[in-house]
């Protein structure tokens, strides 16, 4: 016993080092991806509060650019408004279209308060939380295209796992042919990602558009992801496609969280299918 105490006292520096490393590395491995958002639920409130103050200062520097982007988006939306169209057919008959439609997606605007692009697993924090209707597994887009998925929510802030995170895969498809595959980031360049699982007989061209497939009930169908930068066949029957991301993650300022109103219904259907 005395020898043990002596041993511990003599080697306390090394033993303490081991202890701290074990604690720290446990933290690293236990919080690899989605659980990370859970652990930080408490601290998110504190750091979110501080970060929102920093970003409220720094957003002034980007005002010009943000205004321009919003203006462009408004123009596009105005152009697609029904009031900008003129009826081509003189008499459409008495068909009433209004009641045939119901809303499926609800958009929640939010501001980015912290963001990074230079890590392997980047995260984004935004200034809207459960009080504003944000829930986990909602899709996030910007005016340029897809951004990511909400992984953690506290009352006033949320954490987003963006496309620039090696843990995230998004189901996406070619806009013109409809072939789908899964898109993920390889951790190298914040401007491009990799699309897998497109069979090699599909004809591809540079600058073909990649959009979301809408299979996961998270993203609506047809949200812009990017364009094909390069492609090659790598081992087997599938293309290895480099996609130039349309969203500029370095300049992310305002984003929209998308609430799919029918998501619960879809999930219930999926779950009930499992029992059969």
């Amino acid at each position: 016993m005395r020898n043990l105490v002596k041993f511990i006292l003599n080697n306390h520096f090394f033993l303490l080092f081991l202890l701290f490393e074990i604690v720290a590395l446990t933290l690293v491995f236990q919080n690899n991806n989605y659980q990370k958002a859970f652990i930080f639920n408490v601290s998110r409130n504190i750091s979110g509060y501080i970060n929102s103050h920093i970003s409220s200062f720094s957003k002034y520097l980007d005002l010009d650019e943000v205004n321009k982007a919003l203006l462009e988006e408004n123009t596009r939306l105005r152009n697609s408004l029904i009031s900008s169209y003129k009826l081509k057919v003189p008499d459409p008959g008495n068909i009433e279209f209004d009641s045939a439609w119901t809303q499926q997606y609800n958009f929640i605007p939010a501001r980015v308060i912290s963001n990074s692009v230079n890590k392997q697993n980047n995260f984004i924090s935004i200034d809207k939380g459960s009080l504003h209707g944000v829930q986990t597994d909602m899709a996030v887009i910007s005016h340029q295209g897809a951004v990511g998925i909400v992984t953690g929510v506290s009352e006033n802030f949320s954490t987003i796992i963006p496309l620039l995170n090696t843990d995230l895969r998004i189901s996406s498809k070619l806009k013109n042919t409809g072939y789908f595959g899964s898109l993920h980031w390889d951790g190298v360049n914040p401007e491009s990602a990799i699309l897998h699982d497109i069979p090699h007989h599909v004809s591809l061209h540079r600058n073909d558009t990649i959009v979301t497939s809408g299979f996961s009930a998270i993203f609506p169908e047809g949200i812009m992801i990017g364009t094909i930068e390069d492609f090659e066949i790598k081992g087997g029957n599938f293309f290895f496609i480099t996609v130039n991301l349309s969203t500029d993650f370095r300049k992310l300022n305002f984003i929209y969280v998308i609430d799919n109103i029918f998501r619960e219904e879809l999930m219930e259907l999926d779950n009930s299918a499992d029992y059969d």
Binding site: F20, L27, V28, N31, K36, N51
Partner: peptide
Amino acid sequence: LLTLGFILGITIDIFSNTPGLHAS
């Protein structure tokens, strides 16, 4: 020395969403 290193690292971790990474 070790304790201060751990506290410093974990503080940085909390603000950059990387639990344990900077601490280790």
